[in-house]
């Protein structure tokens, strides 16, 4: 552990100092990094069961192959993030196999079922774009060198996911009929889901130290704008309705619905007409977790304990 104070380390990293390991960190830095990496790792990990459930019924061998290529990447990315956590004193074993489902820190979107190929396609188009928006910012700005290096691989692969999402959204939208309808329905619930993913608006955000320690560079609202800047034009080009538009006067994207608002996970329906709710109500919904939380976590943990028992007997 470093002898510096948090403030001294903040000044150093703002000046370009790169942290290489626990020996360079203050406790404050380690904690902030731990929180960030845990969210990153859990998000990558839980995307795998969520994508897999839909991948099993993808319409052809080729689509099942591309979905598994994405799942393979997500698992590899999760593993890399858990290994980084292990390097700073956390246990990968405990994090992956020793936690209860509600203890995972992934976004609410990955507690939802993906019911068909169109939803998987929009998930790679929207959710993975949110992931890459967050991680590109980390890659550009992070003061933690091992993470910066790891993100080169992750960035390369996530761009494949994006293209996959885009190409397939285009194909299904062009096909018309049921295919187009299913894509639009996926957009209807997944667009607001991703918007919410970026978290509290800046004027309400509690101080986490992530910006001070240069673990990221952009604020939640800025990241939301970056995501919309690529997603809204894509939807417009494909003739899909997305509830946001470019506002000339404000020179930014604005949402066409009350934000945040309530979500019915069973109906996959956002209650736009019930108006804005408090962020406390959002946190409460997140805390309860979505319908697939336990199933997804169980699917990842199911054989580790057995095999471990066998091998140590």
């Amino acid at each position: 552990m470093s002898q510096l104070t948090d403030e001294e380390l903040m000044r150093k990293v703002q000046g370009g100092y790169m942290v290489e390991g626990p020996e360079d960190m203050t406790e404050g830095y380690r904690k902030a990094l731990r929180v960030q990496l845990t969210v990153q790792a859990d998000t990558e990990l839980m995307s795998a069961p969520s994508y897999w459930m839909a991948a099993r019924h993808a319409p052809s061998t080729n689509t099942q192959v591309s979905a598994h290529a994405i799942i393979q990447d997500e698992l590899a990315h999760a593993n890399i993030a858990y290994r980084l956590l292990e390097d700073i004193g956390e246990s990968k074993e405990r994090l992956v196999y020793g936690r209860q489902p509600y203890e995972f820190k992934h976004p609410y979107g990955f507690d939802q079922p993906l019911d068909n190929w169109a939803e998987l396609v929009v998930a790679t188009g929207f959710f993975d774009r949110a992931g890459i928006t967050l991680l590109s910012d980390v890659h550009e700005n992070t003061s933690y060198a091992p993470l910066k290096r790891a993100l080169v691989k992750i960035g390369m692969e996530e761009t494949f996911h994006l293209r996959h999402g885009e190409v397939w959204m285009r194909r299904l939208a062009k096909a018309g009929g049921e295919a187009r309808e299913l894509v639009q329905r996926a957009v209807d619930w997944m667009f607001p889901m991703t918007i919410e993913w970026f978290g509290l608006p800046d004027d309400m955000k509690r101080h986490s130290g992530q910006l001070d320690f240069k673990l990221k560079g952009l604020t939640n609202d800025q990241l939301r704008q970056v995501w919309m800047a690529s997603t809204v034009p894509l939807c417009e080009e494909l003739g899909l309705d997305a509830p946001a538009h470019w506002d000339e006067d404000k020179s930014e994207y604005v949402l066409d619905y009350p934000f945040p608002c309530q979500y019915d996970a069973v109906e996959k329906h956002w209650a736009f007409d019930e108006g804005e709710i408090s962020w406390d109500a959002v946190f409460e919904r997140w805390k309860k977790r979505g319908p697939m939380n336990e199933i997804y976590v169980e699917s990842v943990q199911r054989s580790r304990l057995d095999v471990q028992r066998w091998l140590t007997a």
Binding site: Q72, A76, N79, I80, K153, M156, E157, L311
Partner: peptide, 17 residues
């Protein structure tokens, strides 16, 4: 747990290039 599996895991995990 051994060299053989390490090789397979490495090959399938770091498949970006």
């Amino acid at each position: 747990f051994d060299d053989e599996t390490a090789k397979v895991y490495a090959w399938t995990t770091y498949s970006e290039e």
